[in-house]
Design a protein around this nucleic acid. Structure first.
Lengths: 225, 225
DNA sequence: CAGCCCTATTTGGTATGCCAAACTAGAAAG
DNA sequence: CTTTCTAGTTTGGCATACCAAATAGGGCTG
């Protein structure tokens, strides 16, 4: 067929659907029809079905009573619970990283933080995108440093679910500066090999993010100070 | 065709495989072959494949480099990490339960605890089984009381993974008595609607369980039963 | 015109067949 | 005897076909 790529079809379907949900392209409550999506993605039903099943188990999609499959909704009430889960897990990840991170990994975190600081406060939309990318990579390195695939997979899930709800977030300059400082302090804590320090900084880091995200949900007005 | 049951085949396959893994029937490293399991379970490959995929995402099964699918191993090093994850999540569940549990749910927890106390210390193997059952139900009610399906699914996963490793556990009488007292105290904390209290009791409860499980791994004395 | 039943279609679940990748074993050459 | 190339078998990925449940819509009946 016209499938000229190496990436597995099922994985591709999963990523595509997940991205569409997280980007808001597929709004909460939208119906997912296997056959329709199959032709749309130029695949057969099998990989589409596999992707949908996975999304269901991950909580992104729900199967209703009868024959209905819809994008799950993420009530705001759940949102702070998601953040609390993330805080508890990610602070543990930071603790483990303090013990197990390699010097090379810490150096990389250091470099990423330096780049983030250079972009703060951001001047262009591209700066915002770059900061988001750096932030994601920063946290990913922490995950890897834990040496615990199990924790990583669980954590990844919580983080992604949290992202869905705050698609249209907007961090204030103050929040971004604080975020960068948290990253900087975290690097210091890891270098000092201090699990307690690292854990508490990360805990504060997530709490700050939660406060920002929740407030921007309450009042979607993007006026900053 | 010869499938005479209402339960979905895929779910049945999943439960069967999961039970076999958790019971040790399928030891870590065992190969899982779709076709073989299909005929063995009297199903087609499709539901078997769906079950295996799910187990992979849950971490019970791993796909190797080439064409190999094996039961995942659970290194002891990971075990205390699993317990720590569980502690952090389940203590949060207890906190939420203190806020959201209904009086009926608390009454049910109370009744279960009373029954557990009556069985402690256990006299027969059946007593051990009953205690395990009561314990599982107790924790499940806590989960439900959180009103957070998201937390429940994540938590359930962590708990189940932890169970795999210590199939042949053996709790000492002392540990069981302490466990029952934790449950009793937890009921009190919930009745008092004290999130902090509930959280800390649960945290201690899991830590105690971790200590017991880890020590029984170190020295696999199976003097029980 | 309103309500109910019946059918046509939608939709998810399952079975089966084909294909490509990769592991295995055996034969031939050194 | 060892090594290597190759043919055959195993295995997972994908596509397609069939089935049963359920829904929706239209026509019949009152």
């Amino acid at each position: 067929m016209m499938d000229g790529g190496q990436p597995p079809a099922a994985e591709q379907a999963y990523q595509t659907l997940r991205d569409r949900i997280m980007s808001g392209d597929l709004a909460a409550g939208s119906r997912l029809v296997e056959r329709t999506l199959a032709v749309e993605l130029n695949l057969s039903r099998t990989p589409v079905r596999e992707a949908i099943t996975r999304l269901i188990h991950e909580g992104f999609v729900e199967r209703g009573e009868g024959y209905s499959t819809r994008v799950a909704s993420f009530p705001e009430a759940e949102l702070d619970q998601i953040f609390e889960i993330r805080r508890r897990l990610e602070s543990y990840a930071a603790r483990l990283a303090a013990d197990f991170a390699s010097d090379a990994q810490i150096d990389e975190l250091d470099a990423l933080t330096t780049r983030m600081e250079a972009l703060t406060p951001p001047q262009t939309p591209q700066d915002y995108a770059d900061i988001a990318d750096i932030n994601a990579r920063f946290h990913r390195i922490i995950y890897e440093a834990t040496q615990s695939p199990r924790l990583v997979s669980i954590l990844q899930l919580s983080v992604d679910i949290g992202v869905v709800s705050r698609t249209y977030f907007s961090y204030s300059e103050e929040a971004l500066i604080r975020s960068a400082r948290h990253h900087r302090e975290l690097v210091a804590a890891l270098r000092a090999r201090s699990p307690e320090w690292a854990e508490n900084v990360m805990s504060a880091h997530i709490m700050a993010a939660a406060a920002t995200a929740l407030s921007s949900v309450d009042k979607p007005a993007k006026s900053k100070f």
